[in-house]
Amino acid sequence: MSWIAPGDDRQALMNQLPGIGDRFEGLYAALWHLPQVPAATLELCRLRLAQLHRSEGDWLLEEVRVPAEQRSQLRQWPDSPHFDAPERACLALTEVHAIDAGAITDDHADAVKHHFGEVGLVALLQALGVFDGMIRLGLVWGLADSPGQSR
């Protein structure tokens, strides 16, 4: 049970704020169907954010299936052969975004644009903002072990 309102998972809490919670969930859901960046690449970024935030529940969540080798080697992605160049560009930007968006360099952005274009960079940054928000909400609400049970 969360301390903030009655409810055991993110969906149950979002449902208590109709008009806002459902629209926030709608934006999150739309990210998995973007034509600009593959959903599996976005899932790797979401999982990396879960690792960086130490959110076990978000790490255990599976929005999109990714190869088992990628999951198991995500912390070591710079040295792993299981990540291709577009995924590496996105993961590099994800890690800096998680710490300080102001520290993202032109090189980080150019690497993503090289593979996905300007529209892909914007889509990725929007996705990272929403993923980071969902993870932080689960942690602040006290849902770290079960943020997305109902999905």
Partner: peptide, 26 residues
């Protein structure tokens, strides 16, 4: 109230994502 706290949570989450994106776009 619980609804106010949920609203405050989503306000911060929304604007934080938005401002991070704005900064990252240079």
């Amino acid at each position: 109230t619980p609804q106010e706290l949920l609203h405050l949570s989503l306000v911060v989450a929304y604007f934080n994502g938005f401002s991070r994106c704005a900064v990252a776009l240079g």
